[in-house]
Design a protein around this nucleic acid. Structure first.
Length: 424
DNA sequence: TCTGGGGTCCTAGGACCC
DNA sequence: TCTGGGGTCCTAGGACCC
């Protein structure tokens, strides 16, 4: 048996923990650059504010209705997420952290009544972190997701839905009234295609013949249907596998024009990506960059280009990777464009132990270089991100820095921001 | 003026091998 | 007039997730 636990309106709820006067009011959290709406309180949803809507199109409406907006504060959310995950881990030996606000818990061998356990989880997380959660319990991940959805939608469940405890008739009825697009793994495109084939509800999907589905839609959908019918195809992944690629990209707070500024951005992103790479003890076999103008302004000249370069020898060295990235930028850069976004990709990742020597290649003393990178990481860990870096990444807040006009205090991760009542 | 960021998996098709 | 069969590996693109 599997439980899927997730935090309701996670980012909004995090803001509310430290500003309780927000409870009961329409609140939204915006993406980087204050671009789109990525989290909404129930009150904001009730106003009809759609997910992923561009904020600048809605800010007038929002002002009129007293909607309160926050810039996203990922340091805060990541910290709160860790706290929730730690609380939940106490209740099961098997935990898969699926995303910043969700995890699966294996309930195999957990003796207590599952619904009661769910209620206990809810109560404990609430008391210890101030965050509201919902719990779905079922024999497969896909059904646990479905049960969680029901727990959220229907107040009579009080936030906990155990699928197998529902009478068969009620399960049938839920599935018959739920849109096929609600199923985990079925997105916009697939649900349109399914509906064209006469599959409208979850019940329709669950009753479809497996072999036919596989032929027409592929193995992914076939597995989903098996899961809906109680046959587990997706394992609980307790060990987080190493990332296969690392990407770091940002839209700029304002358009930039010069190669110099793009180089600063690329160097900054690369330093971040390489740090993540070293954190998981991997080497990159290839490095890539991309730059692009703003596609939302079709009347302005558009340019987008990317390039990936395989390395003769896999590396996690910020200096070496930066040099390569900037050489690529020199090849891609064209003057006369208003650049809106750039990014860096590290791919073909492999464990550090698997390094293959190169017969003819002489590089900088690899041990010294490794020590230098470790020192960079240690200083940035101790003194905060960006405390030390390469000169080509710039040394002051750049003109293209992210827009964050509605940023809240950091509350839990910065000394001056810690609420006084808590600090005492 | 202002439109996010970071991932995974699967499939089809091409290159190449014997 | 006629042009095999079976396999692997890699890449690009599309779909999905939060």
């Amino acid at each position: 048996m599997i439980a899927l636990v997730d935090v309701n309106n996670f980012y909004v709820s995090c803001q509310r923990v430290f500003e309780p006067h927000l409870v009961g009011k329409p609140v939204v959290v915006l993406s980087n650059n204050d671009g789109c709406i990525i989290s909404r309180s129930a009150e904001a949803k009730a106003l009809g504010i759609p997910m992923a809507a561009p904020w600048h199109q809605l800010s007038q409406f929002a002002r009129a209705h007293g909607v309160i907006a926050y810039s996203s504060n990922y340091a805060l959310y990541a910290d709160m997420s860790q706290r929730v995950m730690q609380v939940l881990a106490r209740f099961s030996p098997q935990q898969e952290v699926y995303s910043i606000d969700e995890c699966f818990l294996g309930l195999h061998g957990v003796l207590s009544d599952h619904t009661e356990l769910g209620l206990l989880l809810k109560q404990t997380v609430w008391r210890w972190t101030g965050l509201p959660i919902c719990v779905g319990i079922a024999p497969t991940k896909t059904l646990a997701k479905l049960a969680n959805h029901i727990a959220k939608q229907r107040p009579e469940f009080a936030g906990v839905c155990e699928w197998e405890k529902l009478p068969v008739q009620q399960r049938q009825q839920f599935m018959a009234t739920m849109d096929v697009g609600e199923v985990w793994g079925i997105g916009r495109k697939l649900s349109v295609r399914l509906k064209q084939d006469g599959i409208h509800t979850v019940a329709d999907l669950a009753a479809s013949p497996a072999e036919q589905l596989r032929q027409r839609y592929g193995v992914v959908l076939q597995r989903i249907v098996a899961e809906l019918n109680g046959c587990a195809c997706l394992e609980l992944e307790e060990v987080t596998p190493d990332k296969q690629q690392i990407l770091c990209s940002r839209s700029f707070g304002q358009p930039i024009f010069s190669e110099q500024q793009l180089a600063e951005a690329i160097s900054t992103y690369l330093a971040r990506a390489a740090e993540k790479l070293r954190q998981q003890n991997s080497l990159a076999g290839a490095v890539g960059i991309f730059i692009r103008t703003n596609p939302f302004r079709p009347n302005e000249p558009q340019y987008r280009q990317q390039m990936v370069l395989p390395l003769t020898q896999p590396s996690n060295d910020t200096l070496k990777l930066t040099r390569i990235a900037l050489r690529m930028l020199a090849r891609l850069y064209r003057s006369g464009f208003a650049y809106a976004k750039a990014g860096v990709m590290l791919t073909q990742l492999q464990p550090k132990t698997a390094i293959q020597g190169h017969l003819f290649l002489q590089t900088a003393d690899p041990i010294k270089r490794a020590e230098l990178n470790a020192t960079l990481d240690a200083i940035n860990r101790r003194w905060g991100r960006g405390a030390i870096g390469l000169a080509c990444a710039g040394n002051k807040k750049p003109a293209w820095a992210m827009n964050q006009q509605h940023l809240s205090p950091y509350w839990t991760t910065r000394w001056p921001d810690i609420p006084v009542a808590l600090a005492k």
